[in-house]
Design a protein around this nucleic acid. Structure first.
Lengths: 253, 253
DNA sequence: TGGTCCGGATACATCGGACCTATCAGGGGT
DNA sequence: ACCCCTGATAGGTCCGATGTATCCGGACCA
């Protein structure tokens, strides 16, 4: 393995092993380079790479720190990747969301504490009658975030959060072009929450599916604007089906 | 913005604008550094960062290339990030797998080409009567890989692949301690494949759920070895709910 | 003719050191 | 008690040199 890659792995292990905790400061570049047995230049390449994916944060004149490692931070990496994705692949991300979010909603119906349910209700109520586009978006993001966390599964929550990032832009788009969608989306949020409050996992799952599928359908029509012969949910399948030979997943590191 | 960050953004824009297409080769480091007006060292930091997230691929003695930018490739970054999620226990990862793999199996029943089904059948048949532990494991990994790809959704497939990494060790464990599990696992693989061949998505989904839940149940008993009062699928929910108890099994490799 | 081997050209890999710049902690003046 | 200046410190950038993997074309041989 290359020296720089070794350094990346070494720093990663220092974090995983607990030697470096979130917020901790790394040894200065010169010292860490000496400890790892490589030059400062090579170490800097490793640090830069880890900084790009928000694992490290460098502050000139101060030092290099481990970030909070919060999923919200790490998912920013996905935003970077988003810019490089074609429209067609966005549909694939959406389909995964259509799998995960209903599952999260169903679990939230079983596991979310009553206090959290109340908090989510307040979130929706606070939005008022005629919210601005920004408020609407902020509320939507927060609603889905709380819903994901409410599943009681942090891994599930952070994956959903990561996937929301790539579809973020599409949602903004949607809010601007489809005015009616604003109210419908809000109503669907309430329906999901009602089902959770009633501890009805299957109802929550169904409403979540409807909610995601609505956005997905709209996006689908944007990408391939021919008249729909089949429901959007099915058309996604056929769109992904021909599937130009999957490239082998390359070696990591 | 720092010089290196400028370089990252510049390269990204070269890709977004189409100047650099997937598979294209970048100018040599010295030339690109001159063109961007920075030193080779700084450029190398930028290239290293983009290589870590699988946007670029560097080949010593050859050159630096833009990757396929395939969603599956880009999502590998998630596996890296997932390793750093120390709070999430293995059980939580397993639960996500229990959501995704059945969904992938159901989609494979609808979308996987007959030729692929045949290939998977051959994979299982080639294993013979009394396979070694290594062969068993290799077959298991490959089966799930093909199943995920068979879903026709590259993003879904790569997320499943990412999730398998953290649970890899657990599977080895299982193979060594539970001899009976080997044959049962193989039989379940056949059942899943039969359902796909019959184009029965719900049956495929059910068998995949059973398959994952089996491993999950075993793992669950390893962690909290009290006698089971409820089915494993339900106990997982309650076990994950209080949620601090389980010591996360960190570290891959 | 076809295949093999070898060396030069090329491009990335790594290093050590020099110098610039941002930040922070103290000391001293008001 | 407050503000400003300054030195120590840590990252930011650059240069030049050398190591190493890869590719390619020509010499060589069956």
């Amino acid at each position: 393995m290359a020296v720089t890659d070794t350094a990346i792995e070494a720093i990663k292990q220092m974090i995983v092993s607990g030697e470096l905790q979130p917020g901790d400061r790394l040894p200065r570049e010169a010292d860490l380079a000496a400890r790892l047995g490589l030059s400062r230049n090579s170490l800097r390449e490793a640090v830069k790479a880890l900084a790009l994916i928000r694992v490290l944060e460098v502050r000139q004149g101060d030092g290099t720190y481990v970030t909070s490692l919060d999923p919200a931070l790490l998912m920013e990496t996905m935003a970077f990747v988003l810019d490089l994705q074609q429209d067609a692949s966005v549909l694939e991300f959406f389909e995964v969301r259509r799998i995960l979010e209903p599952a999260a909603a169903a679990r939230a119906a079983l596991r979310m504490p009553d206090t959290e349910v109340t908090a989510m209700r307040a979130l929706l109520d606070d939005l008022g009658e005629d919210p601005s586009a920004d408020d609407q978006l902020a509320c939507d993001v927060e609603f889905h975030r709380l819903l994901a966390i409410g599943s009681g599964n942090r891994a599930l929550a952070s994956i959903i959060e990561s996937l929301r990032q790539p579809t973020y832009r599409a949602r903004i788009w949607r809010g601007l072009t489809q005015t009616g969608a604003v109210h419908r989306s809000l109503a669907e949020h309430r329906s999901i929450l009602d089902a959770i409050a009633a501890r009805e996992p299957e109802v929550a799952r169904a409403w979540a599916t409807v909610h995601i599928a609505g956005v997905e359908r709209w996006l689908n029509e944007m990408v391939s604007p021919e008249p729909a012969a089949a429901p959007a949910v099915l058309r996604t399948a056929s769109a992904a089906s021909p599937r130009p030979t999957i490239r082998p997943i390359r070696q990591r590191l």
